[in-house]
Protein backbone atom coordinates (compact mmCIF):
# COMPACT_ATOMS: atom_id res chain seq x y z
CA UNK A 1 0.00 0.00 0.00
CA UNK A 2 3.02 2.26 -0.16
CA UNK A 3 1.67 4.01 -3.29
CA UNK A 4 -0.85 5.76 -1.03
CA UNK A 5 2.01 7.94 0.10
CA UNK A 6 2.74 9.16 -3.43
CA UNK A 7 0.39 12.21 -3.46
CA UNK A 8 1.84 13.49 -0.23
CA UNK A 9 5.32 12.61 -1.41
CA UNK A 10 4.82 14.73 -4.52
CA UNK A 11 3.52 17.67 -2.49
CA UNK A 12 6.49 17.27 -0.22
CA UNK A 13 8.96 17.23 -3.11
CA UNK A 14 7.49 20.16 -5.03
CA UNK A 15 6.58 22.48 -2.20
CA UNK A 16 9.20 21.63 0.37
CA UNK A 17 12.20 19.83 -0.99
CA UNK A 18 12.68 21.75 -4.27
CA UNK A 19 12.17 25.24 -2.75
CA UNK A 20 14.59 24.30 0.01
CA UNK A 21 17.14 23.06 -2.50
CA UNK A 22 16.77 26.32 -4.47
CA UNK A 23 17.29 28.31 -1.28
CA UNK A 24 20.45 26.34 -0.60
CA UNK A 25 21.72 26.88 -4.15
CA UNK A 26 20.91 30.60 -4.21
CA UNK A 27 22.70 31.11 -0.89
CA UNK A 28 25.96 30.57 -2.80
CA UNK A 29 25.08 33.04 -5.58
CA UNK A 30 26.25 36.59 -6.04
CA UNK A 31 23.88 39.55 -6.41
CA UNK A 32 23.64 43.21 -7.25
CA UNK A 33 20.90 45.83 -6.84
CA UNK A 34 18.44 44.27 -9.26
CA UNK A 35 19.42 40.69 -10.04
CA UNK A 36 21.00 37.58 -8.64
CA UNK A 37 23.97 36.09 -10.43
CA UNK A 38 24.69 32.36 -10.60
CA UNK A 39 28.03 31.71 -8.99
CA UNK A 40 29.59 29.62 -6.26
CA UNK A 41 30.88 31.96 -3.58
CA UNK A 42 30.97 31.84 0.20
CA UNK A 43 30.67 35.63 0.54
CA UNK A 44 27.13 35.51 1.89
CA UNK A 45 28.14 33.18 4.72
CA UNK A 46 31.37 35.03 5.44
CA UNK A 47 29.34 38.24 5.61
CA UNK A 48 27.04 36.74 8.25
CA UNK A 49 29.91 35.67 10.51
CA UNK A 50 31.94 38.81 9.91
CA UNK A 51 33.72 39.77 13.16
CA UNK A 52 32.18 36.80 14.98
CA UNK A 53 35.40 34.94 15.69
CA UNK A 54 37.74 37.81 16.46
CA UNK A 55 37.09 37.47 20.21
CA UNK A 56 36.78 41.21 20.66
CA UNK A 57 34.83 42.35 23.68
CA UNK A 58 31.54 42.89 21.83
CA UNK A 59 29.54 40.12 20.20
CA UNK A 60 28.90 40.25 16.46
CA UNK A 61 25.41 41.02 15.18
CA UNK A 62 24.64 37.46 14.19
CA UNK A 63 25.53 36.00 17.58
CA UNK A 64 23.73 38.79 19.39
CA UNK A 65 20.64 38.25 17.30
CA UNK A 66 20.65 34.49 17.86
CA UNK A 67 21.19 34.97 21.58
CA UNK A 68 18.20 37.27 21.76
CA UNK A 69 16.13 34.83 19.69
CA UNK A 70 17.14 31.92 21.99
CA UNK A 71 16.22 34.03 24.99
CA UNK A 72 12.69 34.59 23.66
CA UNK A 73 12.50 30.96 22.63
CA UNK A 74 13.38 29.54 26.05
CA UNK A 75 11.11 31.84 28.02
CA UNK A 76 8.20 31.48 25.61
CA UNK A 77 8.66 27.69 25.72
CA UNK A 78 8.81 27.59 29.51
CA UNK A 79 5.68 29.67 30.02
CA UNK A 80 3.64 28.06 27.25
CA UNK A 81 4.60 24.65 28.66
CA UNK A 82 3.60 25.48 32.24
CA UNK A 83 0.39 27.26 31.30
CA UNK A 84 -0.48 24.91 28.45
CA UNK A 85 0.09 21.79 30.54
CA UNK A 86 -2.23 22.88 33.32
CA UNK A 87 -4.92 24.10 30.95
CA UNK A 88 -4.79 20.74 29.15
CA UNK A 89 -4.80 18.98 32.53
CA UNK A 90 -7.91 20.89 33.55
CA UNK A 91 -9.65 20.25 30.24
CA UNK A 92 -8.81 16.53 30.23
CA UNK A 93 -9.50 15.60 33.84
CA UNK A 94 -11.80 18.19 35.36
CA UNK A 95 -14.17 19.08 32.50
CA UNK A 96 -16.56 16.17 32.38
CA UNK A 97 -18.60 16.67 29.21
CA UNK A 98 -17.30 16.77 25.64
CA UNK A 99 -19.54 19.77 24.95
CA UNK A 100 -17.80 21.90 27.55
CA UNK A 101 -14.40 20.67 26.46
CA UNK A 102 -15.18 21.94 22.95
CA UNK A 103 -16.51 25.27 24.24
CA UNK A 104 -13.42 25.84 26.39
CA UNK A 105 -11.15 24.80 23.52
CA UNK A 106 -12.74 27.41 21.28
CA UNK A 107 -12.11 30.01 23.95
CA UNK A 108 -8.42 29.08 23.83
CA UNK A 109 -8.34 29.91 20.12
CA UNK A 110 -9.53 33.50 20.64
CA UNK A 111 -6.05 34.99 20.12
CA UNK A 112 -6.17 33.67 16.56
CA UNK A 113 -9.44 35.38 15.69
CA UNK A 114 -7.81 38.77 15.19
CA UNK A 115 -5.23 39.94 12.71
CA UNK A 116 -1.76 41.10 13.63
CA UNK A 117 -2.72 44.70 12.98
CA UNK A 118 -5.67 44.55 15.36
CA UNK A 119 -3.53 42.94 18.05
CA UNK A 120 -0.82 45.51 17.53
CA UNK A 121 -3.34 48.32 17.97
CA UNK A 122 -5.09 46.76 20.94
CA UNK A 123 -2.04 46.23 23.13
CA UNK A 124 -1.34 49.99 23.26
CA UNK A 125 -4.48 50.97 25.26
CA UNK A 126 -3.77 48.09 27.63
CA UNK A 127 -0.01 48.29 28.21
CA UNK A 128 0.86 51.76 26.91
CA UNK A 129 2.11 54.76 28.81
CA UNK A 130 -1.49 55.96 29.29
CA UNK A 131 -2.88 52.43 29.18
CA UNK A 132 -5.28 50.59 31.48
CA UNK A 133 -2.60 48.68 33.37
CA UNK A 134 -0.60 51.80 34.18
CA UNK A 135 -3.70 53.72 35.23
CA UNK A 136 -4.88 50.86 37.41
CA UNK A 137 -1.52 50.59 39.21
CA UNK A 138 -1.31 54.37 39.57
CA UNK A 139 -4.78 54.46 41.12
CA UNK A 140 -3.75 51.83 43.64
CA UNK A 141 -0.55 53.83 44.31
CA UNK A 142 1.53 50.74 43.59
CA UNK A 143 3.59 52.81 41.17
CA UNK A 144 4.14 56.56 41.28
CA UNK A 145 4.69 57.17 37.57
CA UNK A 146 3.72 55.31 34.37
CA UNK A 147 5.94 52.30 33.69
CA UNK A 148 7.42 52.21 30.21
CA UNK A 149 8.59 48.60 30.20
CA UNK A 150 5.07 47.18 29.88
CA UNK A 151 5.14 47.87 26.15
CA UNK A 152 7.90 47.69 23.50
CA UNK A 153 10.14 45.60 25.74
CA UNK A 154 11.26 41.99 26.22
CA UNK A 155 8.38 41.65 28.65
CA UNK A 156 5.71 42.58 26.11
CA UNK A 157 7.27 40.32 23.46
CA UNK A 158 7.15 37.29 25.74
CA UNK A 159 3.65 38.17 26.91
CA UNK A 160 2.44 38.28 23.32
CA UNK A 161 4.27 35.07 22.35
CA UNK A 162 2.80 33.18 25.30
CA UNK A 163 -0.63 34.65 24.61
CA UNK A 164 -0.45 33.48 21.00
CA UNK A 165 1.25 30.12 21.17
CA UNK A 166 0.00 28.47 24.35
CA UNK A 167 -2.65 26.78 22.22
CA UNK A 168 0.12 24.94 20.36
CA UNK A 169 1.06 23.33 23.67
CA UNK A 170 -2.48 22.69 24.83
CA UNK A 171 -3.58 20.65 21.80
CA UNK A 172 -0.89 17.92 21.71
CA UNK A 173 -0.71 17.64 25.51
CA UNK A 174 -4.49 17.39 25.74
CA UNK A 175 -4.38 14.73 23.05
CA UNK A 176 -1.87 12.68 25.07
CA UNK A 177 -3.88 13.08 28.25
CA UNK A 178 -7.10 11.88 26.65
CA UNK A 179 -5.40 8.61 25.80
CA UNK A 180 -4.36 7.87 29.35
CA UNK A 181 -6.31 4.95 30.67
CA UNK A 182 -8.16 6.37 33.67
CA UNK A 183 -7.89 3.05 35.51
CA UNK A 184 -4.12 3.58 35.82
CA UNK A 185 -4.79 6.79 37.75
CA UNK A 186 -7.39 5.07 39.92
CA UNK A 187 -4.95 2.27 40.60
CA UNK A 188 -2.35 4.80 41.70
CA UNK A 189 -4.81 6.45 44.09
CA UNK A 190 -5.82 3.02 45.42
CA UNK A 191 -2.16 2.23 46.01
CA UNK A 192 -1.94 5.33 48.19
CA UNK A 193 -0.46 7.93 45.85
CA UNK A 194 -1.42 11.55 46.48
CA UNK A 195 -2.47 14.11 43.82
CA UNK A 196 1.08 15.36 43.41
CA UNK A 197 2.54 11.90 42.92
CA UNK A 198 -0.14 11.00 40.38
CA UNK A 199 0.63 14.16 38.42
CA UNK A 200 4.39 13.75 38.34
CA UNK A 201 4.84 9.98 38.21
CA UNK A 202 1.85 8.98 36.08
CA UNK A 203 0.51 11.86 34.00
CA UNK A 204 3.69 13.74 33.10
CA UNK A 205 5.57 10.63 31.86
CA UNK A 206 2.54 9.53 29.82
CA UNK A 207 2.29 13.03 28.27
CA UNK A 208 5.92 13.13 27.15
CA UNK A 209 5.00 12.80 23.47
CA UNK A 210 2.50 15.63 23.67
CA UNK A 211 4.99 17.82 25.50
CA UNK A 212 7.69 17.21 22.90
CA UNK A 213 5.36 17.81 19.97
CA UNK A 214 4.07 21.00 21.59
CA UNK A 215 7.63 22.10 22.29
CA UNK A 216 8.61 21.53 18.67
CA UNK A 217 5.68 23.68 17.52
CA UNK A 218 6.47 26.53 19.90
CA UNK A 219 10.23 26.52 19.38
CA UNK A 220 10.08 26.41 15.57
CA UNK A 221 7.45 29.15 15.44
CA UNK A 222 9.33 31.43 17.82
CA UNK A 223 12.70 30.86 16.12
CA UNK A 224 11.28 32.13 12.83
CA UNK A 225 9.04 34.81 14.28
CA UNK A 226 9.62 38.40 13.30
CA UNK A 227 6.15 39.91 13.29
CA UNK A 228 5.37 39.52 17.00
CA UNK A 229 8.90 40.41 18.08
CA UNK A 230 8.81 43.36 15.69
CA UNK A 231 5.46 44.73 16.75
CA UNK A 232 5.71 44.10 20.49
CA UNK A 233 9.38 45.03 20.65
CA UNK A 234 8.74 48.35 18.92
CA UNK A 235 11.00 47.12 16.07
CA UNK A 236 13.92 47.69 18.40
CA UNK A 237 14.67 44.06 19.22
CA UNK A 238 16.49 41.95 16.71
CA UNK A 239 15.32 38.64 15.34
CA UNK A 240 16.75 36.50 12.57
CA UNK A 241 13.39 36.57 10.80
CA UNK A 242 13.50 40.35 10.65
CA UNK A 243 16.99 40.36 9.18
CA UNK A 244 15.89 37.91 6.48
CA UNK A 245 12.79 40.01 5.82
CA UNK A 246 14.77 43.23 5.40
CA UNK A 247 17.25 41.52 3.09
CA UNK A 248 14.43 40.11 0.97
CA UNK A 249 12.76 43.48 0.63
CA UNK A 250 16.04 44.92 -0.65
CA UNK A 251 16.37 42.01 -3.09
CA UNK A 252 19.49 40.71 -1.37
CA UNK A 253 18.12 37.24 -1.89
CA UNK A 254 21.37 35.23 -1.73
CA UNK A 255 22.20 36.82 1.59
CA UNK A 256 18.69 36.14 2.88
CA UNK A 257 18.97 32.56 1.63
CA UNK A 258 22.24 32.07 3.51
CA UNK A 259 20.63 33.37 6.71
CA UNK A 260 17.65 31.10 6.13
CA UNK A 261 19.90 28.07 5.67
CA UNK A 262 21.66 28.78 8.96
CA UNK A 263 18.39 29.40 10.81
CA UNK A 264 16.96 26.19 9.40
CA UNK A 265 20.04 24.17 10.37
CA UNK A 266 19.93 25.45 13.94
CA UNK A 267 16.20 24.80 14.26
CA UNK A 268 16.55 21.30 12.81
CA UNK A 269 19.40 20.63 15.23
CA UNK A 270 17.22 21.68 18.17
CA UNK A 271 14.39 19.42 17.01
CA UNK A 272 16.86 16.59 16.44
CA UNK A 273 18.10 16.86 20.02
CA UNK A 274 14.55 16.89 21.36
CA UNK A 275 13.55 13.82 19.39
CA UNK A 276 16.68 12.03 20.64
CA UNK A 277 15.58 12.69 24.22
CA UNK A 278 12.15 11.22 23.56
CA UNK A 279 11.37 8.91 20.69
CA UNK A 280 8.12 10.37 19.34
CA UNK A 281 7.50 7.45 16.99
CA UNK A 282 7.71 4.86 19.73
CA UNK A 283 5.43 6.83 22.02
CA UNK A 284 2.70 7.49 19.42
Amino acid sequence: MSWLAIPYGLVFIFFFFIPLLLTLIVSFWDYNEYSIIPDFIFENYIYIFDNCFTFSNSLCVTFKTYLSTFFFCILAWLFTLLIGFFIAFFLAFYVKTTKWQIVLFLICTIPFWTSNVIRMVSWIPLLGRNGLLNEFLLDLSIISEPQEWFLYSEFSVILALVHLYTLFMIVPIFNSMMRIDYSIIEAAYDAGANWFQVLFFIIVPLCKTGIVIGSIFVITVVMGDFITIGIMGGQQLASIGKIIYVEMSYLQLPSAAANAVILLSITILMIFIMTRLIDIRKEL
Binding site: T65, Q235, L237, A238, K242, I243, V246, E247, Q252
Partner: peptide
Protein backbone atom coordinates in the same frame (compact mmCIF):
# COMPACT_ATOMS: atom_id res chain seq x y z
CA UNK B 1 23.85 50.60 4.46
CA UNK B 2 21.13 47.94 4.85
CA UNK B 3 23.57 45.77 6.76
CA UNK B 4 24.54 48.59 9.11
CA UNK B 5 20.89 49.43 9.64
CA UNK B 6 20.23 45.83 10.65
CA UNK B 7 23.13 46.07 13.08
CA UNK B 8 21.59 49.12 14.70
CA UNK B 9 18.28 47.30 15.15
CA UNK B 10 20.15 44.34 16.69
CA UNK B 11 22.21 46.50 19.04
Amino acid sequence: MVRKWNEMIAS
